[in-house]
Design a binder for these strands. Structure first.
Length: 203
DNA sequence: CACGGGATCGTCT
DNA sequence: GACGATCCCGTGT
């Protein structure tokens, strides 16, 4: 069982629910003629307009954030700290700036390619644990922001039948958003697989 | 293992 | 001109 997630999946309205459903799905990239993939084991939901931690808070529509307003099923990739390209999945209907940050994957295919991209000799946890490093391992850069996930031979997400029950999923506050105020910084919209070692650190 | 700091540049004010 | 949805390395324990 192996099917590529389609627009019906991405364009549902509940980004928090979708963030949990994305756990266990498989992200695949085909970049520079190299196939790499991994099981998504950690996500975070961002939900404009009300979510103060979201780049599109109050529907702020700028050059950077405009792809978040597109209909669900495209990538939102931006540069963080001048160094890291962070990969998000845009969800919801056109005009709803919802996105899911992928924070951790368990590598499956193309492990040697990922090691090369990361300049690592040997596989270990931090090959793909963390939003910046997993983008690097998968070959994703902000050049691909706005790129479709549903009809592309470059990047897509598959359902290969892995699934998790709700007691295998830990919900906790999102990381690195102290500026978002008491309420939004504590909303438990970070989701990760309890027993996976491929999730990011940081409390 | 916990921490502290530096890297580095696009984005928005 | 300030700062960030991060990571890595060094230090100390």
């Amino acid at each position: 069982m192996k099917k590529i997630l389609n627009l019906d999946f991405y364009q549902r309205e509940d980004v928090v629910q979708l963030s949990q459903e994305l756990l266990g799905k498989v992200i695949v990239t085909n970049i520079d003629n190299q196939i790499t993939s991994g099981i998504i084991v950690e996500t975070e939901a961002y939900k404009a307009p009300e979510d103060k931690a979201c780049h599109a808070y109050l529907n702020r529509n700028t050059n950077r954030t405009k792809v978040m307003f597109e209909a669900g099923g495209v990538a939102y990739i931006y540069l963080c700290y001048g160094i890291h390209h962070l990969f998000n999945i845009v969800t919801g209907k056109e005009g709803m700036a919802h996105a899911i940050l992928v924070r951790g994957i368990e590598p499956i295919e193309g492990i040697q390619t990922m090691l090369d991209r990361r300049n690592m000799p040997k596989i270990k946890r931090n090959l793909t644990a963390g939003p910046g490093v997993l983008s690097k391992a998968l070959g994703l850069t902000k050049a691909l922001t706005g790129h479709a996930l549903t009809n592309s031979s470059t990047m897509w997400i598959e359902d290969r039948g892995y699934s998790f029950t709700s007691d295998e999923i830990i919900a906790s506050p999102r990381v690195g958003i102290d500026y978002a105020g008491e309420y939004w910084k504590n909303v438990p919209w970070r989701f990760r697989i309890k027993d996976s070692k491929w999730t990011s650190k940081h409390k």
